[in-house]
Amino acid sequence: MRSPAARIGMLLLALMLTALLGRSVWQLSMLEPASDLPRQLQDKLAASGVEHPVTAVLLNFRSYDTLLEIAVLVIAAMAGISMARTRSLEDPELRTSDTLLRALLRWLVPLMLLLAGYLLWAGADRPGGAFQAGAMLAATGVLMRLTGLPLDFLRPGILLRIGLVLGFALFLLVGLASAIAGDVFLAYPREFVKGLILSIETLLTLSIGMILLALFVAAPVNDASEPEEGEK
């Protein structure tokens, strides 16, 4: 444990930060509202291809953020699977033959997949969307893994890697295609906007599900490792 002086110092630091932050928030809350962004958003919502404003911001107005956010996810997944150097990602200790559990899963898994599909579809006009659906897919996978159902596609091979980048690749290609077609990067053509957003979301759902699942499964149990430079 740390020395009492250091702990008091930390406490003071945290209290000071909270007080200053609280004061700043309070002062800012007294100001006149400065933003007409919500109004601008309402005006342009019809042109965005989706009815739900948050989805419109994520996949149209600020789609570049979302593209990079998926890139961040892919990076984490890569770094994760680069650590798992075992040939099979299945954990034999988790395999179960419990019939009751199996029977339950037989009901749960399809229901969860259905829910994932619903969340994806709902994203167009109410809360939902690719990430939520992908998280649901991943949760299904986690459940399957914890109960020992085989998940062959999660071996660190080419299939897994394709799955990880599928959604990102489509997103990127749409961005490029719109630029080549003469408009700016990521500007969807008006007439296809709804279909494009839906197909990007669908593939993103699959990829996000795989990324999260791969990160969960990436079990770093192996003994291969790189020696430090100059210490071979």
């Binding site: 809350s29 962004l37 919500p38 404003p53 419109a56 911001v57």
Partner: peptide
């Protein structure tokens, strides 16, 4: 607090 529901 300023804008009401703000999707951004």
């Amino acid at each position: 607090h300023h804008n009401g529901p703000d999707p951004v």
